[in-house]
């Protein structure tokens, strides 16, 4: 028996693939030959070592999945790449930092490595349908002296500082004539911050107001917030059906397309 044959026989023996007389013969040889017995032990240990690699990899993958779940549950937001990036007036993509994007990308690559194409469909759909949001210009009519009262919030949003823009729009009082508009902006800040639950609640307030200027937008974005939050409940279905049934709704076609993909 040459070295390669011996190697294959030992592997077959350890895999339980030797049967009948082949098995009996091999076991007899192992008993009689201490060198062969030592070799079998070494192969056995090699298999255990490889098994440890598999075990470690699986543990890492399960922990990654837990982290992913935990991030979703607590709405902790450190992955701006998950949401369509904010754009400036000139269309330049703003990014919070290269590090956070690389970190996000690394996490995504690791997860894709394990789950391949099984990536979360709700979030894929959200990414597909949420096309970002462009805040109005801070200076109205191109007049440098005519500064929009929400300019601070707009600029914070454009700079990717969503916490600051959230704080700004949250503090616009209900009595302010721009309150509903501010709520719409606030909803988008929450979406970018991946706080989908708060985004849904905020857009919901605009929907309730039935302010004709914003209601259709608010309905659509509330739907997307619910989708991202994996909350396809009665509210989700009501909003979706309303947009599908109303052929004049600004988001009628998108709603139909989304429904077909669900």
């Amino acid at each position: 028996m040459d070295a390669q044959q011996q190697f294959d026989t030992i592997e077959a023996y350890l895999a339980g693939e030797l049967k009948g007389s082949a098995l009996a013969d091999f076991e007899q040889q192992v008993k009689a030959d201490t060198t062969l017995a030592a070799l079998v032990d070494e192969h056995h240990i090699a298999q255990d070592a490889i098994e440890l690699l598999i075990e470690s990899d699986l543990r890492k993958e399960l922990n990654l999945l837990r982290e992913k779940d935990s991030t979703r549950t607590t709405k902790v937001v450190e992955m701006p790449a998950r949401v369509a990036p904010a754009t400036t007036a000139s269309g330049t993509i703003k990014r919070r930092s290269l590090f956070s994007i690389l970190a996000a990308a690394a996490s995504v690559i690791l997860l894709i490595g394990f789950f391949g194409s099984q990536f979360d469909s709700s979030n894929n759909l959200f990414d597909e349908y949420y096309d970002g949001y462009q805040m109005p210009e801070s200076n109205r009519s191109g007049d440098a002296t005519d500064v929009h009262p929400f300019a601070i919030g707009f600029e914070a949003y454009k700079a990717g500082n969503y916490e600051e823009s959230i704080n700004f729009f949250k503090n616009i009082p209900m009595e302010d004539k721009g309150y509903r508009e501010a709520q719409l902006h606030l909803g988008h800040c929450y979406l970018h911050n991946e706080n989908y639950s708060a985004a849904s609640t905020t857009f919901g307030k605009v929907v309730e107001s039935q302010d004709i200027r914003f209601v259709e937008k608010a309905e659509w974005y509330q739907l997307l917030a619910l989708l991202a939050n994996k909350q396809q409940d009665a509210t989700f279905k009501t909003l979706l059906n309303k947009m599908i049934d109303d052929k004049g709704h600004s988001y009628h076609q998108k709603a139909q397309k989304l429904n077909a993909e669900l």
Binding site: I45, D48, A49, I50, E51, L52, L53, I54, D57
Partner: peptide
């Protein structure tokens, strides 16, 4: 086991893992 298998290169580790 880790001290033993850790002496292999990463590529070798991966080949053996996939084979197993």
């Amino acid at each position: 086991l880790q001290s033993l298998v850790g002496q292999l290169g990463e590529r070798c580790q991966k080949i053996l893992e996939l084979w197993k």
